[in-house]
Amino acid sequence: MASMVAGANAALTAENPQLATVVVGLGWSVIPSRGPQTEPVAAAILCDSSGRAVSDEHMVFFNQIASPDGSVQFLGDEDQEQIDVDLPGVPEAVAKITFIVYIDPDLRGPGTFASVRDAYIRLADPQNRELLRFEIPSGTAQNINAMVFGELYRHSGGWKFRAVGQGYTTGLRGVADDFRIAL
């Protein structure tokens, strides 16, 4: 298992040639509250070569739990969320899969990542052998309400993973604007 820092990348399939399905686990803990509690939500966005979502249906999250081609699916809950990516099944049009977590923008005190602790993204094989892990740095999240945790991207016929940790202060709306997703 390799621990990553923000901005680092790893040659996922080059170092694991037999890897066909990768399990992407995202996890966090939320500071308990008696009042309205921050609710992080994980999502995966399948992007084309321009970095935009291939379509609105290529945002995969709890209410749209599989990409149209079935290559990216929400399946597990061993972490907070688990997303299975069938690498050979990902359409050629998809150049990158971005994994984000946003704070649900409920009108009643939605909160920010300031209430979120121990956030991470990890990649494992189908036998749950962990391959990569990126612990999201804490302490800079006061106004952040959406964050790109990491991304899988094509490189030289294979797949690489980049740890990102980039925050948004504009929430899911900002993410949707960047990726051209109609909410």
């Binding site: 739990i65 599989a66 079935g70 290559s71 809950d77 688990q82 069938d86 749950n128």
Partner: peptide, 21 residues
Amino acid sequence: AVNRTAIRHDLAFLRRRLKPA
């Protein structure tokens, strides 16, 4: 094999994998 021939509207009922325990 996982069925990838069509959009799986039924997946809402199959969302969670078996727990390791």
